[in-house]
Design a protein around this nucleic acid. Structure first.
Length: 513
RNA sequence: GGCCCCGUAGCUCAGUGGAGAGAGCAACGGACUUCGAAUCCGUGCGCGGAGGUUCGAUUCCUCCCGGGGCCUCCA
């Protein structure tokens, strides 16, 4: 909790202790939707009522008596079933704004109780073709989670895991070879136009594809720290098998993952009549072992909803490897559906029936694409209508938020070296109060977004922040009068938080638009 | 059949065990001689259905209905 809010809550919590409340008591301060209910409200009296065996109203009355009035708190009311409504003074707004400015870049950061070394594995699309919009959601979501974790104080590394051995890859190579010979790719091969382009170049097409993918990710503002490939891991499959409980059935080697909570046992080595090669899951086992050996406290896997059975599998695998499954976190996001002229497109790389991330970026730009892909909950399916992509772009709220940032930049340019001070005027206008309270919200918003792995809360907050700013701007002239220094401070704090929000989701904060 | 996600305004979506549920888009009507109009202001009885837990449920639990996904010795 920011200091400014703690200053309001602490006396109430202390008073609750005097009344006999035990354990961790929290006076969660919420912002009421109705102005008459004060600047902040808490339902603490209702929560304490059962334990104290008294009526909520009565408790609230006594809590209110413990609230010191005059300095930061103007008045306190008991309302409804036992709400405590606080009205704060201009001095409180000054304190809150000063806190935002004083902490600077660090405002809202460091929410991690115990900083961890975390690996976020993201995208990890097979290099059998360029990245699709499906992978883009993985990237936008996973990268934003990684940014949030880093902001919270964790040490974060991003890894991309790719398959460079296996049937899909062989089909891909065979398809390129066929094109090089001037033939059609095999029926079960890859038929996209990019196959023809890759065929123009010599050598193994897999590294070529990977370079393209990395370039696209950079363009999408995702920096991968390390790359891991399946063929390398497969060498250690025999060693990992020795450590796991396995059995043979139908000629294949299985892991008894159900003993560790999995939904089903899984094949690690295929039967001879299916080639006798290790499966993807066998590589998973080696891979997880390797990640753990690096010393990460936490392993984050970012996977699409089509992989949801991996939640059970990776948890079971962690357990089978003798580590706490709680260290393994699988983040599932719902899939992206692409429609064109009202028709759903099946996102199949093999058929070449895909919308590529690069195409989307050409069409709408990086800022709008990242915003769009991260602005809704990861549990929500995303629809992209290719035909409407550009039109929708014009209405993307990202521009509303960026405009707020640019507008403030303009004001600050005009302000030159004018004094900036959080010292509050005798009276604050409603728009000024709303804006300060919004700034104060940031700390809890970003902490919860991190905790829930829900980066979509950031753009939602950013829109509200920009909204409060635009309204303030409309009603009050900044560069004029006695309140100028305070209003400039308000602008500066707002600009910094908008920039912070945008950075957390990989969007730029322009000085001009 | 089993498992996962979703069902909130005309559309796309936020939201929280608390008071009277929000935003964008679309629609209509207003506001620029003034720091950037990519802006602002006004107009909105909507939490799929039925039970349950609770002082209080849109939120938690159960069931039902509807939509999407997964249940390969694919990756």
């Amino acid at each position: 909790m920011p200091g400014a809010l703690a200053r309001l809550a602490d006396p109430i919590v202390a008073r609750a202790g005097e009344l006999g409340a035990e354990g961790a008591v929290e006076a969660a301060l919420a912002r009421p939707s109705i102005e008459a209910h004060g600047d902040f409200a808490t339902a603490i009296a209702m929560r304490l009522a059962p334990a104290l065996g008294r009526s909520p109203r009565e408790i609230a009355e006594e809590l209110a008596e413990g609230v010191p009035l005059g300095g930061l708190i103007e008045s306190v009311d008991v309302a409804g079933p036992g709400f405590l409504n606080l009205h704060v003074t201009p001095a409180w707004y000054g304190l809150a704004l000063a806190e935002v400015l004083d902490r600077g870049e660090a405002y809202g950061s460091g929410s991690a109780a115990e900083p961890e070394h975390i690996q976020v594995e993201l995208v990890s699309a097979n290099p059998t073709g360029p990245l699709t919009v499906g992978s883009a959601r993985n990237g936008a979501y996973g990268d934003s989670v990684a940014r949030l974790l880093a902001f919270a104080g964790h040490r974060v590394e991003r890894e991309y895991y790719y398959n460079d051995a296996g049937s899909q890859i062989e089909r891909f190579r065979a398809s390129v070879e066929a094109r090089r010979r001037g033939e059609e790719p095999p029926e079960d091969g890859y038929h996209g136009d990019y196959i023809t382009e890759v065929a123009q170049l010599d050598g193994d097409p897999v590294p070529t594809m990977l370079e393209q993918i990395e370039a696209t990710l950079r363009r999408f503002r995702i920096e991968i720290d390390t790359w891991e490939r399946q063929s390398k891991l497969e060498r250690d499959v025999p060693a990992i098998i020795d450590r796991l409980e396995t059995y043979e059935a139908a000629g294949a080697l299985w892991i008894r993952s159900t003993a560790h909570g999995d939904e089903k046992d899984r094949v690690l080595v295929r039967s001879a009549d299916r080639g006798g090669l290790p499966t993807y899951e066998a590589a998973d086992a080696v891979y997880m072992q390797r990640k753990l050996a690096v010393g990460f406290d936490r392993l984050v896997y970012v996977l699409g909803a089509d992989h949801h059975s991996y939640v059970a599998w990776l948890g079971a695998l962690a357990s089978a490897l003798g580590t706490d499954p709680a260290r393994v976190e699988v983040l599932i996001y719902q899939l992206v559906h692409v429609t064109e002229q009202g028709e759903a497109k099946k996102v199949s790389k093999r058929r070449g029936d895909v919308v590529l991330l690069d195409e989307l970026l050409d069409e709408v730009g990086v800022d709008a694409a990242r915003w769009f892909l991260v602005a809704r909950g990861h549990d929500q399916t995303v629809d992209i209508d290719v035909d409407l992509a550009r039109e929708k772009t014009q209405k993307n709220p990202v521009y509303y938020v960026q405009y707020g940032h640019a507008r403030i930049a303009g004001i600050l340019r005009n302000a030159g070296a004018a004094e900036i001070s959080p010292e509050p005027p005798a009276e604050l206008a409603p728009a000024e109060r709303d804006l300060v309270k919004r700034l104060v919200d940031f700390t809890s918003v970003v902490a919860e977004a991190t905790e829930h792995r829900g980066p979509h809360a950031i753009p939602i907050y950013a829109v509200r922040l920009a909204d409060d700013f635009h309204r303030f701007y409309q009603r009050h002239r900044v560069l004029d009068g006695a309140a100028q220094a305070f209003r400039l401070a308000l602008c500066l704090a707002t600009q910094r938080l908008i920039a912070r929000c945008l950075d957390l989701i990989g969007v730029e904060a322009p000085e001009r638009m």
